[in-house]
C-alpha cells in the first residue's frame, strides 16, 4: 500500500515534539495508531489519534471526534474495572482527539484465522493426506473451536459489564501471547499473527456505547457474525461455538442470542423465508 498518507497528518501536542518521529502502525477506518510510550519511557503504549476528517464538515467533525474519544475512554475504564479483557487507559486528550492505552502484544484474530485458513487450503491441495497431517488439521480445528468459545465468553463479559462494542470485527480482536506460551517468550513475535491458543483481548472501542439492551448486544453479535461470513468463510461454521459459549456466559445472554435471529432478518431486501 502507498505510504503517501503518512505525511498528511501532523500529530497533536504533546506528541508532535517527540524526538523520534512516531510512525503509524496502522490506519484504521477512523484513526491512526502509533506505538509510543506514556507515563514512563518503558511503558509501551498504543496512541490512537483521530485526525480531522477533511471530508466532514468541520462542525460535525469536531462534535463526532470529541464524542467518540470521550466515549471510548469512559467505556475502556469501565470495562477494565469489570474485568473485561481490554487495554487499560493511560491518558486522554479529547479536544485534540487522542487516547493512549496499554500496548497489547500479539496479533489480530484476523491474521491468525487467515493463517489457519491458508494452512488448511494447503492440506487440501497436498491431498495425499499423511496421517499426521490430518491429525494436525484436526487439532487446529479444535483450537479454532476453543478460540471461538473464548471469544464468546469475552464478548459475554463485555456485555455483562454494560458495554456494547459497536464494531466487533476480526481485526478488533487481539490474541495476546500468554507469558507461558512459546510465542510469549521472544519479543520477535511481537508483530506476528497470534496463535490460536493465545489470550483474547478486545480492542478498538471507537464505536462502543454503554448499553444493556438486548437489541444493541444482538447487533454486536450480528456485526461479528457478518465479519466472519465476509472474510473468514471457513471459520464461519464454528460461529455456533461462539454463540453457545456466549449464551452461557451471563444471565440474560440466551435472550440476546434469540434476539440475534430477529436482527439477522432485518437487513433490507433479505428473504424472509428460511
Amino acid at each position: 500500500m502507498s505510504q503517501a498518507w503518512l505525511v498528511l497528518h501532523t500529530l497533536p501536542a504533546p506528541f508532535f515534539t517527540s524526538s523520534t518521529p512516531l510512525m503509524p502502525i496502522t490506519q484504521g477506518a477512523e484513526a491512526l495508531l502509533f506505538k509510543t510510550s506514556l507515563i514512563t519511557t518503558d511503558t509501551p503504549a498504543a496512541l490512537k489519534y483521530r485526525p480531522p476528517k477533511p471530508y466532514r464538515h468541520p462542525i460535525l467533525d469536531k462534535k463526532l471526534t470529541k464524542q467518540r474519544i470521550l466515549a471510548e475512554a469512559r467505556v475502556l475504564v469501565k470495562c477494565a474495572r469489570e474485568g473485561v479483557p481490554v487495554p487499560r487507559v493511560l491518558a486522554v486528550g479529547w479536544e485534540e482527539g487522542w487516547v493512549g492505552v496499554e500496548w497489547i502484544r500479539g496479533g489480530t484474530l484476523r491474521g491468525a484465522l487467515n493463517e489457519w485458513e491458508s494452512k488448511r487450503m494447503g492440506t487440501y491441495i497436498g491431498k495425499s493426506a499423511h496421517e499426521d497431517g490430518g491429525e494436525e488439521a484436526e487439532e487446529a480445528e479444535e483450537a479454532v473451536k476453543d478460540l471461538m468459545s473464548r471469544i464468546g465468553i469475552a464478548v459475554g463479559r463485555l456485555h455483562q459489564a454494560g458495554v456494547v462494542h459497536g464494531d466487533l470485527t476480526t481485526s478488533n480482536i487481539m490474541l495476546r501471547p500468554t507469558t507461558q506460551s512459546p510465542s510469549g517468550e521472544s519479543q520477535e513475535h511481537e508483530q506476528s499473527n497470534g496463535s490460536l491458543k493465545d489470550e483474547v483481548v478486545l480492542i478498538d472501542f471507537g464505536l462502543a456505547a454503554q448499553s444493556v439492551q438486548d437489541e444493541d448486544r444482538a447487533v454486536d453479535l450480528y456485526v461479528l457474525e457478518r465479519a466472519f461470513g465476509a472474510t473468514h468463510p471457513k471459520a464461519e461454521p464454528f460461529f455456533g461455538d461462539l454463540l453457545r459459549a456466549y449464551g452461557d456466559s451471563f444471565k440474560g445472554a440466551k435472550v440476546v442470542v434469540k434476539r440475534l435471529e430477529e436482527v439477522r432478518l432485518r437487513g433490507r431486501k433479505k428473504s424472509m423465508i428460511g
Binding site: M1, S2, Q27, G28, A29, E30, K53, Y55, R56, H57, L60, D167, T169, S171, A227, A230, T231
Partner: peptide
C-alpha cells in the same frame, strides 16, 4: 453533509477491513 458523511464513514470502515484503497 450528514448522510454523506455517514456513507463515507461506513465505506471507509469496509475499506480498512478488507485492506483496499
Amino acid at each position: 453533509e450528514t448522510v454523506f458523511a455517514m456513507l463515507v464513514e461506513i465505506t471507509e470502515r469496509a475499506m480498512a477491513h478488507v485492506g483496499s484503497s
